[in-house]
Design a protein around this nucleic acid. Structure first.
Lengths: 145, 145
DNA sequence: GTACATGCAAAAAATTTGCAGAGAT
DNA sequence: ATCTCTGCAAATTTTTTGCATGTAC
């Protein structure tokens, strides 16, 4: 309900890494910090730039590899915005998104309730583990109408 | 409810283009056909290859430009799968998706009901036009567990 | 000590752009 | 005649890979 603080997010990511046996290298540590402090929806390259403010020699490869790893562990997630680089977001608040199909901008959407009922007859998900339900509203924002 | 046929999808796309003043060039016509017949979630480059089966000289630029245009008009949509090319899908059935965070594969999910209530106090969407509500389930598929 | 992580540098993949000419209305 | 659309070709952007070296545990 209440927004999680940046420090909380950092702790959550750090614990998540530890639990999964991911070592806490300086590069990864800075990335986690950057992620936990991120507002909006930075791209992979954004992240490289931000980490470089602290560790100027960090390589693209390292940041991208780490992002992939965190994604695979479910610690961060991505957003779909066609025609741009993948945008990342830290798993924290339970919020959703509106994406404008004209300008591609993303707005956060908070729900007061969400009821999703899967049609099991038409959907094959046996043995699947569902960790998250994301709602994306698509349309045209006020500025683009 | 029932699946729309490929011919119906094609008609829908073609009408959509006409309504918006998009000319029906041979290249665009083949692309619409390819889109309407697409199973799964082809990438931009997939689409180039498929159009080239009919028009071998079509350029990347043309296909990508057209995809962007159709996206902007809301006639097709994209899916988010980190670490892959953008995947497209024709606006047709009212289905949703499960994305495996390990292998990145996408499964179609059909819902028997969907109730989304926006918290207006916390969400600023005044003057926004919402055309679609997409649910993405995230987790780990049976094969990756 | 050992598996994991990084840097480097290059390659691969994906997408966009400018411009001149062709085609639709 | 005009405005849209295309092809070409190159550039840009984004992401990944292989391998030798370094380091957290």
């Amino acid at each position: 309900m209440s927004s999680r603080s940046s420090a909380d997010r950092y702790t959550h990511l750090r614990t998540g890494c530890a639990d999964r046996g991911l070592r806490l290298t300086p590069q990864r540590e800075v990335l986690l910090r950057v992620l936990s402090e991120a507002k909006g929806h930075p791209t992979g390259d954004d992240m490289v730039q931000r980490v470089r403010k602290v560790l100027p020699t960090v390589s693209h490869a390292t940041v991208y590899r780490n992002l992939q790893e965190l994604l695979g562990e479910g610690l961060i997630r991505t957003l779909e915005v066609a025609g741009t680089a993948v945008q990342f977001e830290v798993n924290s608040d339970d919020h959703h998104h509106f994406v404008c199909r004209r300008c591609g901008h993303v707005w956060d959407v908070y729900l007061s309730s969400l009821d999703v009922r899967i049609n099991r007859r038409r959907t094959e998900l046996d043995g699947f583990q569902v960790d998250r339900r994301d709602v994306q509203l698509h349309g045209v924002c006020a500025g683009c109408r």
